[in-house]
Amino acid sequence: MFIINCPYCGERDQQEFKAGGEAHIERPKQPTELSDDEWAGYLFMRKNIKGVQFERWNHAHGCRKWFNMVRDTSNDEIKLIYKMGEKPPSE
């Protein structure tokens, strides 16, 4: 169980949060223009990295806000947390 520093509420136990999968996969603005393969790419294809991964998290049992997290999936080390809409760190 890790501690997550919610950008709105501060440090809280992992129990209060819900993971929301890979971050920065934008919903296509014009889905009808996409081929089946392109749409399937948006729907289904995820990197599922062992190592540093960009993720979405929701403070479900708290402020209900979504935010982004950079987490090492091999040891749960949280490298960075930033709000929705903010640019991901380049590094």
Binding site: K18, E26, R27, W66, M84
Partner: peptide
């Protein structure tokens, strides 16, 4: 509710 919040906050802010 969670799903609707997700769209509101992340796709259609």
């Amino acid at each position: 509710l969670g799903k609707l919040e997700d769209y509101l906050q992340t796709e259609w802010p």
